[in-house]
Every structure is written in structure tokens, then in C-alpha cells.
């Protein structure tokens, strides 16, 4: 172990010096060869020479691992014997089904609640003078890590059986009004929703910021024109503001969808997937590091990738279309 660790500084040094040197030499070599070619040919080849290194890098650290994962997902727990699609069959059966169900709740609940709340905050903040202060308050949780945020909310959601002193903030408030304490992290479905709310709390700031800047980019003259045309505030929001911030709404929505697909830390810290709150990414972690089942873990990783890919592609295409317009 110590032997390998001793190599780390050497590797860093080689990387820090070697990669720039290699880049320089590679590009120099490429340009040298290009200069020998006829004008037209060298012109059309030049982009590829310059792009070859980044493409190589992407192949090495992105494409290659994906292909390895794909192959591993077709193998057994130790990544050796070929088992066909049985890992995928497992992924869509038994306990995995309830896990998938939880992810679907995340997939719908998290983006929807975040979008509605951030739209409301962004629009309302735009109308008040103390916007900078209000915005700071909403953004603060963004600076907290998911893990630290989860620790905070462990206190908020803390539950003692009825009749005992409630130290959890939410249950303490409930007991003030004589309401029975709610086992926020234990009661099924309620617990998943409670976890989703933590994610909303953590991400609301960044979503509000994105939408708020989009709203500020809308020309005030256009809104004034709509006002003179007889539009009330709600009409202006629906017919003027919303259609003009669609790109930003899409960014928020797709980012949140991808985040809800790969949600892990909140669940890991708060419940570790117990009480029916487990999600795919947490199960992936369990399969990989606790059960040491490479086949299962890889199959889950592939499923996650396949789910997230279209969302990412939609985002990219939308972005391109916007740029063209």
C-alpha cells in the first residue's frame, strides 16, 4: 500500500509536465505533417489534428469506461462469466421494483416542486425592492453540501413516539398545536417526499437564480406594451414571461430530472434506503461496495445512463435551436 502511495507524487509530476509536453509535441508533429500536404488537403485536415487530442481524451475517460460497464453488465457478480440479460431481468424484478417506483416519485416530484417554487420565487422577487436580500436567503442552502444539508434535516425531521418530548423542529411545531408527531422518515411515501423536500431546499436557490436572470432579460418595454394592451399581472406571466423563459425552464427541468435520477447522498445519509426510501443510485452503491456484485452494479449504471441520456440530448438540442434562433 505504501509503495503505491509513494508513486502518487511522481504520477502527478509526470501528468503535470508530460501532458502539456505531449500535447505540444503532438500538435507540432501534426502541423509539421500538414505543412507537407497540399494547401486544400491540409486545410480540411487541420481541425482533426487539433481535435485529435481532446477526442482521444474523451474516448479514454468517457467512452471506454461506458463500453466496459456495458460488457460487465452482461457478466456475473465477479465480472467473469457471461450471463446474458439476467442482470437486467433482476434489475426489473423483486425489490428493485419498489426502488424504481421511488425513483419515479423523485423524477416527478423533485423537478415539478422545484420548478413551481423557483418560478414563484423568481417572479415575486422581481417585484420587490429587497430582492438581493431575499435572493441571498434562497441561495444560501446551495452553498451547503447534500450531506451537510441532510444532517440539518435529520434534526428537522427527528421523531419521538407520541407523548415524549419532540426535539425535531417539525414535530415540535406540530406538538405545539396538539397534533400527533409524524414519523417523517419512517412512514412510507411520506418519507420519500420528505427526502425530496431536502433536495428541493438545496436546489431551489440555483433554479431561482437561473429563472430570475431569464426574467430580467425580458425587455421591460414588451411587458409595458402588454400592460397597455390590457393584460393583468397573471396574463403577463402566462402570455409574456413564461413563453420567453422556456429555454431557462428547460435547463432547470432537465438538470433536476437528471439530478433526481442519480440522487444518492440524501438517501444514503438520511435513511440509507431503509423504510422503503431506497433509490437506484444507493442500490448501485450497495451492489458495488457491499455486495461486491459487479454485474448488478453495472446493469444499474447502464439503466441510469439510458434514462439520463435522452434528457441530456433534449437539453443539447434545445440549446442549439435557441442559439440558431
Amino acid at each position: 500500500m505504501t509503495d503505491t502511495l509513494a508513486f502518487v507524487p511522481v504520477l502527478i509530476a509526470i501528468g503535470a509536465i508530460g501532458i502539456p509536453v505531449l500535447t505540444y509535441v503532438g500538435l507540432g508533429l501534426g502541423e509539421g505533417i500538414l505543412s507537407l500536404l497540399p494547401q486544400g488537403l491540409s486545410g480540411s485536415l487541420r481541425p482533426w489534428v487539433w481535435l485529435s487530442l481532446p477526442i482521444l481524451l474523451v474516448l479514454l475517460i468517457l467512452i471506454y469506461p461506458i463500453i466496459v460497464t456495458l460488457f460487465t453488465s452482461l457478466r456475473d457478480a465477479r465480472g467473469e462469466g457471461f450471463v446474458g440479460g439476467s442482470n437486467y431481468l433482476w434489475a426489473f424484478s423483486g425489490t428493485m421494483m419498489s426502488i424504481l417506483k421511488n425513483n419515479i416519485i423523485w423524477l416527478i416530484g423533485f423537478p415539478a416542486v422545484t420548478l413551481v417554487l423557483s418560478l414563484a420565487t423568481a417572479v415575486l422577487f422581481d417585484k420587490v425592492k429587497y430582492e438581493p436580500v431575499a435572493m441571498t436567503v434562497v441561495i444560501l442552502p446551495t452553498a451547503i453540501s447534500f450531506t451537510a444539508g441532510s444532517v440539518i434535516w435529520t434534526q428537522m425531521y427527528s421523531f419521538q413516539p407520541q407523548g415524549m418530548t419532540q426535539i425535531g423542529t417539525l414535530n415540535a411545531i406540530r406538538s405545539l398545536f396538539g397534533l400527533a408527531p409524524v414519523p417523517w422518515l419512517i412512514a412510507p411515501v411520506v418519507n420519500t417526499l420528505s427526502l425530496i423536500f431536502i433536495a428541493v431546499w438545496l436546489q431551489l436557490g440555483i433554479a431561482t437564480l437561473i429563472l430570475s436572470s431569464a426574467i430580467k432579460n425580458i425587455g421591460s418595454e414588451m411587458l409595458e406594451a402588454a400592460r397597455l394592451d390590457g393584460a393583468g399581472e397573471w396574463r403577463i406571466f402566462r402570455s409574456m414571461v413564461l413563453p420567453n423563459i422556456v429555454p431557462s425552464v428547460m435547463v432547470v427541468l432537465t438538470t433536476m430530472i437528471i439530478a433526481s435520477l442519480k440522487v444518492f447522498d440524501i438517501v444514503y445519509v438520511m435513511t440509507n434506503g431503509n423504510f422503503g426510501t431506497n433509490v437506484i443510485a444507493n442500490r448501485l452503491y450497495y451492489e458495488l461496495f457491499s455486495a461486491n456484485n459487479l454485474g448488478h452494479a453495472s446493469a444499474i449504471a447502464v439503466i441510469l445512463l439510458v434514462c439520463a441520456l435522452p434528457v441530456a440530448l433534449i437539453n443539447i438540442f434545445h440549446f442549439r435551436a435557441e442559439n440558431k434562433a
Binding site: 425587455g219 418595454e221 406594451a225 397597455l228 409574456m240
Partner: peptide, 15 residues
């Protein structure tokens, strides 16, 4: 919105 006037803006302010 209730003044019944129409305005043409410098930057047109089209939707």
C-alpha cells in the same frame, strides 16, 4: 390597461 390608449415604443416592444 384601463386607460384605453395604445403606445408605440422606441424599440417596438413586439412580442
Amino acid at each position: 390597461k384601463d386607460r384605453d390608449i395604445a403606445m408605440v415604443f422606441q424599440n417596438y416592444a413586439l412580442y
